[in-house]
Design a protein around this nucleic acid. Structure first.
Lengths: 188, 188
DNA sequence: AAGATACCGAACATAGTGTTCGGAAACCTG
DNA sequence: CAGGTTTCCGAACACTATGTTCGGTATCTT
C-alpha cells in the first residue's frame, strides 16, 4: 500500500483518539481532526466518509487483538469453566490499558458507535465460547442467542461501571465478579 | 398551569415520537418537530433547550409508570423470588405496547439518550429490589452496585434483542428467560 | 526518470442550531 | 366579560458543521 495512504489514515485515527481524550468523542469535528493531524479536509473525505467511519475502522485493531487472545485462551485453559468467558479478562485488561480513552468514549452519548462495535465483537467471541461449551457438555442449543445478548449487555454494563467509578478494582477482580454472577447467578 | 403551555409541550412530545417512528430519532430535526406540531420554532426553545431535553422530559411518564407498578408488585407478590426483579415483566409489557417506537429508538445511535435514561430508571428499581432482598435474607451488602449494573445491562440487552428480532416471544417468556439467567446463571 | 497517485486548500452549496423581538392571539383572574 | 398578563408566531440574523469540487503541487512506486 502507498505509504502516504497508510500514514494519513494512521495519523487521522490517532488524532481522533487524542481529541476524544480532550473534548469527548461527540464534540470532535472533522475539522478538528484534520487540524490535529495536519491533513487537508478534502483528504479526510478521500479516506473516510465520516467521523464514525474513521472510528469503526480504528476498532478493527481491537477486534483482531481480542480474537487472537481468545484463541490462546481456548488452547491453553485447563478446565472448561476456565476457558469459558475468556474474553472477559482480556477485554478488562485492554480497557484498563486505555482507561482514559474508554472513559472519554463512554462518558457522552458519542460512545454508542464505539460501544456498539465492541458489543458486536464480544458477541462473536461469546458465540464461539458457548458453542464450545455446547460441544463439551450436553446442553440443548436453546436460548443461546438470548444468552449471548444477556452476557454482552451484562459485561459491557459492568465494565463501564468499573471504568466510571475510577477502575479501583483490578481487572482480575472484576473478571471474577462477572464470571461469578454469570455462572452462578445473583445470590438471592 | 396555563393551558397553552400544557398543550404545546404535549403536542411537541407527540410530534417527536411520531417523527421518530418515521425517520428515526437521530434524523429528526427541531424544525421537523415544530412543523409536525404546528408550533413556532422560537416557541420550542421557550420550553425545551434541545431535542434530547424534550425526549428526557417525555420519559418522566415512563418513570412514574414503572415506579407505580413496582409498588404494586412488591405489595402483592407471594414469595420473595416472585417479588424480586418485578421490573422485568412490567418493562417488557411496556416495550411491547410501544414496540414500534422502541424499535425506532434503539435502531440508530440516537437511542442512547432514551436508553440511557431508561437504564437510570431501571437502576433505581433494581436497587430497591436488591435492598429488599437483603432485608429479607441474610446477605452481605457486597458488590451490590456491581450487581445493579450487571442486571441493568443484561436486561436492556435482552430486551433490545427481543425487540429487534421481532418480539416473537411473549413478554412472559422473555421475563422467565431473563429471571432464570439472572437467578441461576447460564448453564455451563 | 517518468508516470501515477495522493495531498492541499480554497471555494461553494446545503443544512441545522440557537437567539432576538415586535405584534397578534389566547388565557386566567376578578 | 373586560383587564392585564402570558404565550405564541414568524421572520431575520449569526454561527457552525458537513460534504463536494477542482486545479496545482508534492510524493510515492516501478
Amino acid at each position: 500500500m502507498d505509504r502516504r495512504i497508510a500514514r494519513t489514515r494512521s495519523i487521522l485515527e490517532s488524532a481522533l483518539n487524542q481529541l476524544t481524550l480532550v473534548k469527548g468523542y461527540e464534540a470532535v469535528t472533522i475539522k478538528d481532526i484534520c487540524d490535529e493531524a495536519n491533513v487537508g479536509r478534502s483528504t479526510f473525505y478521500a479516506h473516510f466518509t465520516s467521523k464514525d467511519d474513521l472510528k469503526r475502522r480504528g476498532l478493527e485493531h481491537l477486534r483482531h487483538h481480542l480474537l487472537a487472545r481468545q484463541q490462546a485462551a481456548l488452547a491453553g485453559g485447563s478446565s472448561p469453566q476456565d476457558r469459558a468467558l475468556s474474553f472477559s479478562l482480556v477485554m478488562l485488561e485492554h480497557a484498563r490499558d486505555h482507561a482514559a480513552l474508554y472513559k472519554a468514549l463512554v462518558g457522552d452519548r458519542g460512545g454508542s458507535v464505539a460501544l456498539g462495535m465492541i458489543r458486536e465483537i464480544l458477541g462473536e467471541l461469546i458465540r464461539t465460547d458457548l458453542a464450545r461449551l455446547d460441544m463439551e457438555r450436553v446442553r440443548g442449543p436453546a436460548d443461546r442467542e438470548a444468552t449471548v445478548h444477556y452476557l454482552v449487555g451484562a459485561f459491557m454494563s459492568v465494565m463501564i461501571w468499573w471504568l466510571d467509578s475510577g477502575a479501583k478494582l483490578a481487572p482480575g477482580e472484576v473478571d471474577t465478579l462477572f464470571r461469578h454472577l454469570s455462572l452462578e447467578g445473583i445470590d438471592v
